[in-house]
Amino acid sequence: MRLRVEFTTEPFDLDEAPAHAVVARDIVTGAELDAVDVGPFGNTAEGDADQVLGAVAALLRESLGAGATRVSLQVNVIAEAGGSKDPERSERSEGSEGSAT
């Protein structure tokens, strides 16, 4: 199974990345994850379920330890063994094929 994690850490600081944000970034970029996208307002990464779940555990533990007061995250299944795809992506694709604008 493949998973996608989306997360943010708080408090925000637009002038300089806080320590908890740097820790979170280092965890996801150092993990064996695919499609890592780190930005000021949200972060995403995809990968094997075991790798994503391990990174999420480390992310929570380390970013809270580095001063985060809130960590918001969402984890989605994006593929099952055997190649089935994200049901939300399939529904959006199927629904948009026949619609007129």
Results as ranks from 00 to 15, higher is better:
residue 18 P to W: 04
residue 88 E to S: 12
residue 73 L to G: 11
residue 16 E to H: 12
residue 74 Q to Y: 06
residue 48 D to R: 13
residue 75 V to M: 10
residue 91 E to H: 07
residue 84 S to C: 07
residue 90 S to H: 09
residue 21 A to V: 10
residue 24 A to K: 04
residue 8 T to V: 06
residue 80 E to V: 14
residue 57 A to H: 11
residue 34 D to R: 13
residue 96 S to A: 13
residue 7 F to H: 01
residue 25 R to W: 01
residue 11 P to Y: 05
residue 92 R to E: 07
residue 1 M to L: 08
residue 12 F to Q: 12
residue 74 Q to L: 13
residue 54 G to V: 05
residue 56 V to Q: 01
residue 69 T to E: 15
residue 96 S to Y: 00
residue 14 L to N: 14
residue 48 D to M: 05
residue 62 E to V: 05
residue 36 V to G: 04
residue 52 V to Y: 04
residue 57 A to M: 09
residue 69 T to M: 04
residue 70 R to I: 11
residue 46 E to D: 15
residue 31 A to C: 07
residue 39 G to I: 00
residue 11 P to E: 09
residue 45 A to P: 10
residue 87 P to W: 05
residue 57 A to L: 12
residue 43 N to L: 01
residue 11 P to C: 07
residue 21 A to P: 03
residue 10 E to P: 11
residue 19 A to I: 03
residue 79 A to H: 12
residue 13 D to C: 10
residue 20 H to A: 05
residue 69 T to I: 12
residue 58 A to Q: 14
residue 10 E to I: 10
residue 92 R to S: 06
residue 6 E to C: 08
residue 46 E to P: 11
residue 4 R to P: 05
residue 27 I to V: 15
residue 73 L to D: 07
residue 25 R to G: 09
residue 63 S to T: 12
residue 75 V to F: 06
residue 11 P to D: 10
residue 31 A to K: 00
residue 94 E to S: 15
residue 37 D to C: 05
residue 63 S to I: 00
residue 33 L to K: 08
residue 29 T to D: 00
residue 31 A to Q: 02
residue 42 G to R: 04
residue 60 L to T: 02
residue 10 E to W: 06
residue 98 G to D: 13
residue 37 D to F: 04
residue 98 G to E: 11
residue 72 S to W: 03
residue 92 R to Y: 04
residue 90 S to I: 15
residue 23 V to D: 01
residue 12 F to W: 14
residue 69 T to K: 10
residue 82 G to E: 13
residue 84 S to W: 10
residue 85 K to P: 10
residue 82 G to F: 08
residue 76 N to L: 10
residue 96 S to V: 05
residue 90 S to C: 07
residue 38 V to S: 01
residue 39 G to N: 01
residue 75 V to Y: 08
residue 23 V to Q: 03
residue 73 L to A: 14
residue 31 A to L: 02
residue 81 A to L: 13
residue 42 G to W: 03
residue 45 A to F: 03
residue 27 I to W: 03
residue 48 D to T: 09
residue 13 D to E: 07
residue 99 S to M: 09
residue 30 G to D: 02
residue 20 H to F: 07
residue 82 G to V: 07
residue 48 D to Y: 05
residue 99 S to H: 05
residue 7 F to G: 04
residue 8 T to P: 05
